[in-house]
Design a protein around this nucleic acid. Structure first.
Lengths: 233, 233
DNA sequence: AGAAAGCGAGAGCGGTGCTCTCTCTTCGAG
DNA sequence: CTCGAAGAGAGAGCACCGCTCTCGCTTTCT
């Protein structure tokens, strides 16, 4: 684990790579993923466009780096929010999660769109992004685990079909070691998660405009509803 | 209301406009909105790119036409599904709505992404698209109205905050004339709608991959849960 | 010290949206 | 019926894009 690069060249490479990614990140936040131009980034960093290819083999690779960075940033924000609550306060933690999620998304709409909006045209997210993406869902899974451990169970969870019981195995195996959440409850938590992202996307992408006049109130209302549906208060 | 165009020129214009839009629609389905190329469309229609500008003043205008067309197609699919159920069968109608929505989205992923994914870069959907977009939500609102009329009310709907009561006015006013749904119930229906779009987007955009192994079962499970939460069965 | 690898610049390819000009056709009013 | 206006297509061109390739120069490794 050599933290300091050996040669001057390696040191320069790290620095320039960072500069490119940093500039790219700024552009991403300003113009969005689809309009992100490698040439414009190169121009700002102060080199010719072809030189950038020494650092990122393609625009998509650069995009991948930005995706991972964004996932990590969002994940960190969620973790911070979560850990600011008492571990037993599942309702508070869910609220903090939802609040932090929406806050980050509204502060970084382009990044949110990159992560959870439609995929960019020819781009397929490589497996490298998966761990970073899981960080976001891991936080809410831990809240679900804690709530389950504390005997706080979703109300009116419908019994699962056989296929659904089998299908939810992927999520089940993502639980922390030694943790268990009833499948039917897990599915309700998943639906809560889907609702959060769904409502947030509808809001950010403008589909609630005209219908919902107070997005803050609507979000708070949904959190409150979820806290009850999940049996947290 | 002249259905037949007067002159040969007007007739040709209509026909060519239709041909361009039709080809654009095909391309949209194949390569997605961001990769949609006006030049490629022109090439296939058999004219030079600059000529297309006689018919659509910009690529965005063409995109707008495609958005409206897609909304209309989705709306029609939902209406057809809805009307294939007995009007009193609110649970069946909700199921049909959800089923048709997912079916259409999976058959037209690029169109779905165009409508409900992240907005394309510099593009802002003009107000022209709003009526078409409302067609999609109108269908489920009618189901909510009918359910409410029949005394089928969502279970455990949380009381609304003052702000939320005021904020939901936009949706309230979208109800059909003479119809009424309690605000708190309306919000639950809205959340159901958000959940449907949220879960569908997560599925289509690949965020459930690895976690949910059987998307069909998961969708069916969510529908069943919603039917109960909304008090439909 | 010399070979090898890394790196930046520049030119270039094929693509994009869009504009402008030129020519030809069609239309409608006198 | 004529003639000017308007509509339509083609082509060239502008500024941009992602990406490739070559050519020198520098750093590194052997």
């Amino acid at each position: 684990m050599t933290t300091a690069p050996r040669t001057a060249r390696a040191r320069a490479r790290e620095e320039i790579t960072r500069a490119i990614q940093q500039t790219a990140r700024r552009h991403l936040g300003e113009v969005g993923p689809a309009a992100l131009s490698l040439r414009a980034i190169a121009r700002e960093v102060g080199m010719v466009s072809s030189a950038v290819y020494r650092y990122f083999p393609s625009r998509d690779e650069l995009l991948t780096a930005l995706i991972i960075e964004s996932y990590d940033e969002l994940g960190a924000a969620l973790e911070t929010a979560d850990s600011s609550c008492a571990p037993q306060d599942a309702a508070g933690r869910l609220g903090a999660y939802a609040h932090a999620l929406r806050r980050w998304a509204r502060e970084h709409p382009h990044e949110y769109a990159l992560l959870y909006g439609s995929p960019v045209p020819g781009y397929a997210a490589p497996p490298t992004t998966i761990p970073a993406a899981l960080r976001v869902s891991a936080v809410i899974l831990r809240i679900a685990e804690q709530a389950h451990r504390a005997g706080r169970h979703p109300a009116a969870a419908r019994p699962l079909s056989e296929a659904e019981t089998a299908g939810v195995a992927g999520v089940r195996s993502a639980l922390a070691d030694g943790q268990h959440v009833d499948d039917a409850h897990l599915v309700r938590w998943l639906q809560a998660w889907s609702l959060l992202f769904g409502q947030l996307s509808l809001e950010l992408f403008g589909h609630l405009r005209g219908g919902i006049l107070d997005d803050d109130a609507h979000w708070a209302q949904t959190i409150e509803q979820l806290q009850h549906d999940l049996g947290l208060q």
